[in-house]
Amino acid sequence: MGLDIRYPIGMMFTLIGLILTGTGLFNGGNVSIAGINIGVNINLVWGLFLLVFGAFMWVAAIRSKGQ
């Protein structure tokens, strides 16, 4: 297989994770666009999760390449 799809998936979610984490840190994420307080900075939490997910995909791709 010429392209390991885990690279683009890892890259994309890492970038989106960075965007969400940044938004969470600087603009918050507790209040939805409808003005409801959702009680958690979801941008920060989910951004960090996506960072971990993205990194996981990278590592998986790199490890399988090494074999």
Binding site: I16, L20, N27, G29, N30, S32, I33, A34, I36
Partner: peptide
Amino acid sequence: VKRYCPTGLLGL
């Protein structure tokens, strides 16, 4: 989506 998403998560 409209009820719960703040800017950022909305885009996602």
